[in-house]
């Protein structure tokens, strides 16, 4: 298999040629420091991690009830240990 496998795959080659990349103009030395890069990552738009939960009625209900249940449990734990 030393020959070019794309010789037989002309259509695939044609499709691959359709993907052009625009190379932006940027200097060799980074202007952004490590800290700026971290801030960039933290500040970029992110998806809502609880979205799959709130999309269903049960999930939404659990999300509403869970803090109340957790709060009640914490209250009981405090009552048991500190009273």
């Amino acid at each position: 298999m030393n020959q070019d496998p794309f010789k037989k795959e002309t259509y695939l080659g044609m499709k691959l040629d359709e993907d052009h990349v625009e190379v932006p103009d940027f200097p060799m030395n980074p202007k952004m420091k490590r800290w700026d890069r971290l801030v960039n990552v933290l500040a970029s738009p992110a998806k809502n991690p609880v979205e799959p939960v709130i999309s269903t009625t049960t999930g939404f209900l659990v999300l509403k009830v869970a803090p109340i249940l957790a709060g009640t449990a914490l209250t009981f734990i405090q009552l048991i240990f500190f009273l």
């Binding site: 990552v41 933290l42 970029s44 738009p45 992110a46 998806k47 809502n48 991690p49």
Partner: peptide, 8 residues
């Protein structure tokens, strides 16, 4: 930290 996942 799933909230860091960007919108795809």
């Amino acid at each position: 930290l799933p909230f860091l996942t960007p919108i795809e």
